[in-house]
Amino acid sequence: MKILVTVKEVAEVDDEFEIDGLDIAEGSLEYDLNEWDDYAIEEAVTISEARDDVEVVTVTVGPERAEETIRMALAKGADRAVRVWDDAIEDAQFLDVDAKAELLGAVAAEEEPDLVLSGVQAGDDSNGATGVALAETIGFEWAAVVNQLDLDADAGVASVHRELEGGIEELTDVDLPAVLTIQTGINEPRYASLRGIRQAQRKPLEVRSLEDLGLDPSVVESPLERTSMYEPTSESDATVWQGSADETAESLASLLREKGVIEG
């Protein structure tokens, strides 16, 4: 059985940052493994530890710098990694969801996984769409926002709990092969120690270009375009009531009524 985990290196912005053209200045950014992907990796590694015949492969779209992050995934127990990158991707001004799905889909077509795990969303651009778009691209079944997974690999069925809005949970079965987008809290991701990351440098990490994947450079073109980057002015309008609990509760109640939050 093979599990493909999509992994992204996300940018984190310092408290104090500068804007440089259409982007945040490189000096204001720190990079880290996407939080949701951390849970997806843990889920895949847990499955592989429970069975003998499971290979966990990670796939990333990202520059060489991203290898630091990929090694964290390898240190946590993934068996090998694929990184997709070339000049056309580097030059693309904005990599949209479809483009990412195409790139990841090409790798999935090569790897032929039984299960693809992806994070629900990335911490930086927060699209929350890549996993499902990938399922569409490669024609897999899918389930989004999975917070519990029971895999019956022999029967080829994944029984999942999906976290829906309003505290509703959906219990459903998905036939493999499938893409599941993994929600935080599904497990407790393990730590990748510095020694573990060093050891992971011995694991295979393959770099694939568009050409290697048989894709045309036009795949990264997007109808979307970034036109400007600015810091929105933030406003806060906090009302603080002084007085006893009874008085302040009354003031709060009348405000909530006035704003239409509650009725009666």
Partner: peptide, 12 residues
């Protein structure tokens, strides 16, 4: 424990 990755998330 660190080698195994068994580290509490606050400590991680």
């Amino acid at each position: 424990l660190t080698d195994q990755g068994d580290v509490q998330s606050s400590m991680q």
